[in-house]
Design a protein around this nucleic acid. Structure first.
Lengths: 193, 193
DNA sequence: CGTCTATTTGAATGTACTCAAAAGCGGTGG
DNA sequence: CCACCGCTTTTGAGTACATTCAAATAGACG
């Protein structure tokens, strides 16, 4: 059962009791997502928070020139969603699409809110999880403003080795903020050293 | 009293009862910080979370080449601290220094943890606050990877007009991830259009 | 095998950096 | 009140990093 991996995830952070586990099993809904299928499109309001059981997603912005910029990838045991739109109720500027056939567990905003009220422990769990995401996000900002593309690529490989043969270089380039062509020259240079 | 501005801040997010207010008043300690004084230095462990009552700070990283990169500014009613080091207990790579004479309210890590246990409401408050910080941080990543320096500068002015005549261009350049010289040419170009 | 997509290559261009120096500007002491 | 100091901002020339555009090559998959 998919829900097991989510319960394991929660128990790892903070053990759940029976009632909490039962509520989780009730409010999270399993969905199977095909490759190239979207779970959020620009202009929609983000109504769900999604936990990846299996597969891989990317969340990206399309700029005024029509170019795509990857903000985040998500694989097994990661969360994905536009937190901003989810909380404010404003339309999202982001898209989330599956890079592989995937299985996710989704919770609706209303259910998440009542989860926080009924079982305060989840406030804590989500606070910790959000803090970790914030730390990672800040780390990436520092990288972007202090490192060259080559350094960022090396750091990416070091940090997310599991992505190396799973995500195309086009997508990695978009995540790093460089063109695929330039990433290619970086890779050529690195292979010859 | 400085504590009033913090209580106002909390009440604005989620009204506090008497006991909660009293605890806040007890665990937060007021400190007066002189211009150029540090409240965190690289290598130290971040033991405090700080709320700015008055004044202005910057948090920055020094890279291997000795260059400084601003991750964040904080003025009145903002929080500042290295969340990563605060939670993991590992030494921080960041520095936090006052740009003006400032007054802050600090809470120790132990007190913040017991605040969460004794008054669960603060889990919620800090979760929301962290979510907002994460949204802002993600927004900035997207900007960094999708915009030119000129666009980032215009967006900065638009977003933080209160910083325009308060923070030097050297500091703004470091925040945007460009050299002061290049920011100067951007400003020149913008003034002539 | 053919089609589609991803990756590589290369030339020309643009964006941003480095280094050095000049100019501006607010404060402080004589 | 002026002269000087320290710091910020501006200017400019030369260079490095990264993009654009076009086209060739390589892989993956039906």
């Amino acid at each position: 059962m998919s829900i097991t991996s989510l319960l394991d995830y929660f128990n790892n952070l903070l053990p759940l009791d029976e009632a909490e586990s039962a509520t989780v099993a009730r409010v999270f809904r399993e969905r199977s997502i095909k490759r190239r299928q979207f779970i959020l499109r620009e202009g929609e309001i983000s109504r769900y928070n999604s936990f990846v059981v299996e597969g891989c997603f990317r969340m990206y912005l399309v700029d005024d020139k029509g170019k795509e910029h990857n903000l985040q990838f998500a694989i097994e045991n990661w969360w994905i969603g536009d937190i901003g739109s989810f909380h404010t109720g404003e339309p999202s500027r982001l898209n989330i699409v599956a890079l592989e056939h995937s299985v996710i567990l989704q919770i609706r905003k209303e259910d998440q809110l009542s989860l926080f009220v009924d079982h305060p422990k989840f406030n804590r769990i989500f606070r910790v999880f959000t803090e970790n995401a914030l730390v990672a996000s800040q780390r990436r900002i520092l990288q972007n403003i202090s490192s060259t593309a080559e350094e960022r690529y090396l750091d990416f490989l070091d940090r997310y080795p599991q992505f190396f043969n799973r995500i195309s270089n086009v997508q990695i380039a978009s995540f790093l903020g460089v063109t695929p062509e330039f990433l290619s020259t970086i890779r050529k240079k690195l292979s010859g050293s």
